[in-house]
Design a protein around this nucleic acid. Structure first.
Length: 719
DNA sequence: TTAACCCCGC
């Protein structure tokens, strides 16, 4: 009784007038007196339950439920049970709803519809359809309230066949002309990717409301037709309808897709002018997305700072937006701010944050996110576990990646895929191949992506026979189409192993047109095996297909420089200049005491720079004593040897290693990340340092990991 | 009672 009284009338004050009007009492005070003196009649309980359902108030509903049970009102009361089931279903508490539902003998269509809606709107599409089937076998006919949710369930399940059948049923029973049914059908076909059918339904609707238009607009955006989305909006305006919040969300998505900043800003202006009339929270988040997609990072920050109510999605949009635009530092900084300001991170936040960690190899940061996840009791869903595995693998801690993988009970294709590619980038090809076979044994059907991962693992580890076997069974054993990435891996595999002619032959006999990536793989193989002839062919093809990417030019200059063909080196340099391309400066990261330090090539800006150069000088001396001879072939300038050697000691990875050597105790593992490929001389130097200083050095370059230990590298010198 | 809703893993 008491607890029900606390259901009290705060509710009445805060919520909608219709609720008040429906109440048979004149004032809140009156109601309290009444309920104390005599029990509430079930009709009134029903009215309140309905109001609670309207505002989705689960806790108050549960209190009322308890009251109804103690007052004995529930016995044989189909009316109240039905209302209670409706309340639980609306709040998504399907177990409770189902229990009450099971106890009701006389099920009316109202009850069936609420249950179906509850399942369909809370991610249990299959259950919704099962219930729909039961409904008809109970002799209860579906009506215009049933169909929208049954259709929604078909759409969410992408069950095209059933969706079409129900569409037919709707036409036969005459509900096809209902506006809600029409809107649901439009949405369903657009989820199926069948935007033409969606449009036909839309065009044939006798009456259309704002939702019909919104459904078409967002349907076009989701089907990759942003221009059509804008076009149909102009048609909508001609009918005299004006945009609501949902319309603008769709339009902003279209602008984001088209990077149409001007139109996006117009919408922003419209939102500012009509803010109160629109559902502002959603819109702000869509604006953030739009600005990120248009690369307007200044505008996006201004907008975000001005937002009065930042919800989890706003934070998530910012964190993932920065991460997507390669601003991983900003992304992590914002995540810290989010926690400090007391906002509640969710699964989406963690996925974005872990993705940012792997961009800059922030292993310690990633680990604290992991422990935060454990502490806060975030049940490790497969999706978060997968992000963790990926983060650990890409931050160089394969042991942790593997232990998270082992602890994940329900591994899906992506989860296996991430672990396999983790082994691949660490040069552990045999483990990758055996995990791939284990995956098949677990009845997971491989897709293009996982086949790419396993092929790439073979190429990094030089497993030519294994890689070829997998490549040639792809189309035979599984229903997977060969894509460019597969060819790219095969060429890489053959090329690295020195089978340049065979690799070239693969390209010439490909069934699809080779992409620039594939020629880049061959070009790189030519650099490793010093084959100028095939290199020149590959480079030409590469430049034809991708004139803007500077990597190919640099690779070719490296090949010429190794042959001391300085005129050719100069010719390529001119080409780079003519095309206005910029060679990104070499840059390395290290993480120390949860801070990420960045070193540029020849960097003089670090506070400890003098100690660093002193350390490097010592190292150079030590290395020479054990017979190190600098390999200056990667220096693209025709200057004297002494100067070339000096330039090598400016390489960012050496600065980073020296910095860590100075600031950590003996034995600590050194982890570095570099934005470009490690050069041949640095590779040799790091091998020697690992031996002389007794340090394990784990280095991530643009493609993969190198584990240096005791004078050896895991890559077997195929850098 | 009724449809449309921003952020996410290879």
């Amino acid at each position: 009784m008491d607890c029900f009284l606390t259901l009290n009338l705060k509710l009445l004050k805060h919520h909608s007038p219709p609720f008040l009007k429906k109440m048979p009492f004149t004032s809140p005070a009156n109601f309290a007196d009444n309920s104390l003196s005599q029990p509430l009649p079930s009709l009134q309980c029903g009215t309140i339950l309905q109001s609670l359902t309207n505002i989705k108030s689960l806790t108050k509903g549960q209190q009322l439920h308890a009251y109804i049970i103690t007052s004995g009102n529930l016995r044989n009361n189909t009316y109240l049970s039905t209302k209670l089931a409706a309340l639980y279903a609306t709040c998504g508490h399907m177990t409770d709803a189902q229990m009450i539902f099971n106890g009701i003998v006389l099920k009316n269509s109202f009850l069936w519809n609420f249950m179906i809606r509850g399942y369909a709107c809370n991610g249990f599409s299959v259950k919704a359809l099962v219930l729909y089937k039961q409904m008809s076998s109970f002799g209860q006919n579906a009506d215009k309230f049933t169909y929208p949710f049954v259709i929604k369930a078909c759409g969410d399940l992408l069950h095209v066949e059933l969706g079409r059948r129900i569409h037919g049923e709707v036409v036969l029973t005459g509900f096809g002309s209902d506006i809600y049914v029409g809107n649901s059908l439009t949405a369903m076909y657009s989820k199926f990717g069948d935007i033409r059918s969606a449009r036909i339904i839309f065009d044939r609707m006798p009456v259309r409301d704002i939702t019909s238009w919104n459904t078409m607009i967002s349907g076009y955006v989701k089907n990759g037709k942003p221009k059509e989305a804008l076009a149909i909006f102009y048609l909508m305006k001609q009918t005299g309808l004006s945009a609501d919040g949902m319309t603008l969300v769709g339009l902003l998505c279209a602008c984001a897709e088209l990077a149409a900043l001007k139109q996006g800003k117009e919408i922003h202006g419209y939102v500012v002018r009509n803010g109160n009339a629109l559902c502002v929270d959603f819109l702000m988040n869509s604006l953030i997305e739009m600005y990120f997609n248009c690369n307007c990072l200044v505008d996006v920050l201004k907008l975000f700072e001005k937002m009065a109510r930042k919800d989890t999605v706003s934070w998530n949009s910012m964190i993932s937006g920065y991460a997507r635009n390669t601003y991983a530092f900003e992304s992590l900084r914002l995540f810290c701010r989010m926690i400090l300001e007391g906002a509640k991170p969710d699964q989406v936040t963690f996925i974005a944050v872990l993705g940012a960690c792997d961009q800059i190899t922030a292993l310690q940061f990633g680990m604290s996110v992991h422990s935060y996840l454990v502490k806060k009791g975030f049940g490790a869903t497969t999706i978060v576990a997968t992000a963790l595995i990926d983060m650990y693998a890409k931050c160089g801690n394969l042991a942790c990646a593997h232990s998270v993988f082992n602890e994940t009970p329900e591994k899906n294709l992506i989860c296996w895929s991430v672990m396999i590619s983790g082994y691949g980038i660490h040069g552990m090809g045999r483990e990758a191949v055996s995990l791939f076979h284990e995956m098949i044994k677990n009845n997971i059907i491989p897709d293009e992506g996982v086949l790419t991962s396993v092929l790439s693992a073979c190429s990094h580890a030089g497993l030519v026979a294994e890689g070829k076997e997998i490549f040639y069974t792809i189309t035979k054993d599984y229903d997977v189409k060969l894509v460019l990435a597969h060819y790219s891996c095969l060429v890489d595999l053959l090329g690295r192993a020195g089978h340049l002619d065979e690799a070239y032959k693969v390209i010439k006999t490909m069934e699809i047109n080779p992409s620039s990536d594939i020629w880049a793989a061959l070009l790189n193989a030519c650099r490793l095996h010093r084959n100028v002839e095939i290199a020149e062919i590959s480079a030409k093809k590469f430049f034809d297909l991708n004139a803007k990417q500077v990597g190919g030019y640099i690779c070719l200059s490296n090949i010429y420089a190794a042959e001391k063909r300085w005129d050719d080196v100069e010719r390529v340099r001119m080409l780079i200049r003519e095309k206005g391309l910029i060679k990104p400066p070499g840059c390395s990261f290290v993480e120390l005491d949860k801070m990420v330090h960045r070193f540029l090539v020849g960097d003089k800006s670090h506070p400890q720079i003098e100690n660093i150069y002193t350390k490097l000088k010592q190292l150079n001396q030590l290395l020479k004593e054990v017979g190190y001879k600098p390999d200056t072939s990667s220096v693209l300038y025709n200057v004297d040897e002494e100067f070339k050697e000096k330039m090598l000691w400016d390489h960012s990875e050496r600065l980073a290693i020296a910095y860590v050597l100075i600031n950590t105790s003996p034995g600590t593992i050194i982890r570095i990340t570099k934005n470009l490929r490690v050069c041949g001389d640095c590779h040799t130097v790091i091998k020697l340092i690992s031996k002389l200083m007794c340090r394990e050095i784990i280095m991530r370059d643009i493609r993969r990991f190198h584990h240096f230990r005791d004078g050896f590298c895991s890559c077997g010198d195929y850098w």
